[in-house]
Write a protein that binds this DNA or RNA. Structure first.
Lengths: 209, 209
DNA sequence: CGATTAACGAAACTGGAGTCCCGTTATGGG
DNA sequence: CCCATAACGGGACTCCAGTTTCGTTAATCG
């Protein structure tokens, strides 16, 4: 008697199963970028992926679970980080990378949809959190280097500085219709650098008023 | 022969029509706060509002249009702005207000849902944009006063400073599961103030690298 | 206060998203 | 290479969100 609790796709993950997963994730990305997260249904994704809709329902079940899987997949493809030797230079490189990603029609729509989906389902929210944790950890060392150089005060929360670069770009993407241009990216980097130098991201200041 | 193009609710807006609108918007807010924007259907809202579902479908038609209406309604209820005499004090007051709103279970869920809905429908996105434009314009004068006092350089984009206060709070709300506490609010205000003083929000610097 | 008709609401209807059944394909172990 | 069975896929089925129909209630105007 076999172990019936095993999820489909876990016992024979090679060959066809892997091809189906790749095709479905690809199709899901296309559909999300086009129609947004609301008018998304698994039957349509199955059609695009040229896969039986039964398969999609069996392996993923709901739109939000599929999106969590897609997010995991995206998290694995990490982009190389450049080093410029100054905090402002590094933060600008990061800001430009985020800005280019969000300004790209397909990617931008994809990220918007992901954030929307995360507001609806805990599973997806958790996947999104992990995705950004990975990205933030990748870039945090450049702030540590700035601390070592004496550019930024000791005790600065390095992760918070990286998040501060992305925050205004995402805020603009989500709450205004304005285009995300390079000026916005540079401004985000400059603001984060200036605030970090001024000691705005010091840890353990919670009690202070 | 009457004008057939008039939308329902526009010719006789008083009495029952107004009561129905209030009840439906109220119910929509409750439903959003509980279930999030994905598992939302108009039939359920009609039930909560003790109103015929036909009415809801006729007057709003889709979830996103209803949410746009709810957003308009929320935009009208504006909170009074306090003045403390210093840029940091004013920005902290603003940050605390935003933080309290987003940390509140009902309101926080509501805002998340609104942002999610705006990613799916242009109409809702436009309503959301207007909502934040109003809020930002309300608070911008405190930055202008800081410019007049010489705290912040001439030529600073006052709206951008206000947005910079909210951005990290919204970013945290949407991309991490962490609680929004007062420390986060204060840090957002301090960072925005420091960056503004350093001239990070000067207008017309687009060409600069 | 009475007539007009805007707006509401109950009930029947419809289409398609999501489920179930069962036959087919091809993976991975022996 | 072959077998057991994991995983896929077509097609029938179900169920409910959203629509249509038509009768009822009440807002506005004189």
């Amino acid at each position: 008697m076999g172990f019936e609790g095993a999820d489909p796709g876990t016992v024979r993950p090679g060959g066809r199963t892997a091809r189906v997963r790749a095709a479905v994730l690809r199709a899901a990305g296309d559909a999300l970028a086009e129609g947004g997260f609301a008018h998304l249904d698994l039957a349509d994704i199955a059609r695009r992926a040229e896969v039986g809709k039964t398969t999609v329902y069996r392996r993923w079940g709901t739109v939000t679970i599929l999106m969590a899987d897609l997010l995991m997949d995206m998290a694995e493809q990490s982009l190389p980080r450049t080093e410029t030797g100054s905090l402002l230079g590094d933060l600008k490189a990061n800001a430009r990378l985020v800005q280019r990603t969000l300004a790209d029609p397909r990617q931008g729509a994809l990220f918007k949809a992901m954030i929307a989906a995360a507001t609806c389902e805990a599973k997806t929210a958790e996947a999104l959190r992990r995705f950004y944790d990975i990205r933030v950890k990748e870039w945090a060392p450049c702030v540590q280097q700035a601390i070592d150089r004496g550019e930024v005060p000791e005790g600065t929360d390095v992760h918070e500085v990286i998040r501060a670069v992305s925050a205004p770009l995402y805020y603009r993407l989500l709450t205004s219709g304005d285009r995300l241009d390079e000026a916005a990216a540079d401004r985000a980097a400059e603001a984060a650098a200036a605030a970090a130098r001024a000691g705005a991201y010091l840890r353990g200041q919670e009690g202070r008023v």
